[in-house]
Design a binder for these strands. Sequence first.
DNA 1: CTTGCAACAGACCAATCGGTTTGTTATTGT
DNA 2: ACAATAACAAACCGATTGGTCTGTTGCAAG
Lengths: 194, 194
Amino acid sequence: MSDAEQTRQKILAVAAEEIHQHGFQATSLSTILNRCGISKGALYYHFTNKLELGYAVFEENYIPVFLGTWQPALSQNDPIEGLCEFFTSMCNSMVCNEAVCGCPLNNLCEEMANVDEGFRLRILSMQEKLNALIVESLERVQGDLRDNLVFSQVAYFIVATFHGATSLTKSSRNKELFQQVITELCLYIRALKK
Amino acid sequence: MSDAEQTRQKILAVAAEEIHQHGFQATSLSTILNRCGISKGALYYHFTNKLELGYAVFEENYIPVFLGTWQPALSQNDPIEGLCEFFTSMCNSMVCNEAVCGCPLNNLCEEMANVDEGFRLRILSMQEKLNALIVESLERVQGDLRDNLVFSQVAYFIVATFHGATSLTKSSRNKELFQQVITELCLYIRALKK
DNA sequence: CTTGCAACAGACCAATCGGTTTGTTATTGT
DNA sequence: ACAATAACAAACCGATTGGTCTGTTGCAAG
């Protein structure tokens, strides 16, 4: 990796952290510069403005990480159990920082969806992709599931509940609350089976 | 109502709107001043600083409205149907502005819970109150419900899903998505009965 | 009649914001 | 050897932020 590409990646990584912790609008470019040990010239050489930096963080960091965490769970032989194990292990491995900062995608959705159209469309596209993934995996084991299920509806329900759980955790700073919602969610998911 | 109290209420009302639409941090005091047609001196006569204004909005506007919308649903003879009708009517009556701006409480939770402890504790207290309300109403009709239900867990689950649904609606700007999650949530809630 | 305070008005302030511009350095092709 | 460009450094800029300070006005009590 070239020097230039290295600084670009460094910027992306630091910006991703800052945006995750403080939100996009509250993230200060000068903080990023300080943490990276670079100048403003460097940043504006690699990114045309703050918004484009935000988009780059979203596409090059958040999306891959997001898909990388959901995909394996859904490609299990039994996606129902895959999801439940995924959620449960997330409960157990969750460190304080994650609990407090929430899901980067959901954070951006809450903050930027009605502020900037570019963010909104990117978030929407990601959510639709995740929904499609879940629907796919449910269809794959359709035979084991109850009749009359509306897969897309079920998929959105699962994601909504998950994101709601992270929101609850932010205010309570209590892993147990997250765990409770997840436990109930797993009960719901397993009840999808015949 | 005295003149002074009137301006105070005006400030609170306008601030509540601005915070709902743009979040607390992105809300500009000068915007509030302009919309109210008052000076900075007036605002700082009634509130010591921006944070205290935010707290006042939360306690004097958001909390009463929030409780005022959930309470009636839960005090129905049949809280299960009360909740479902509450959610469904919210789907139908939801105008674009509400869909885009989301729930004020959840917004503040996402934005401020890990930024300011004062906000976090107020939000937490409100969430616990709502949870207690739901638990109460479930206990009231305990006889009609399935055994082995953990009421508090169920209550948090319902609220989490509801808030997750509003988040989904923000990015999609699609009432139907909200409706789908709510439909599935009502299925879940009704399935709590024997 | 005047003194005092509640209820503001509005100029002013330092700090910070995102963004621009100019300058410098190291490398590379010719 | 030289010109060109990539990859920055850093001073600078206008706008805006939350917050302060000094006035000013109207009413009410003494």
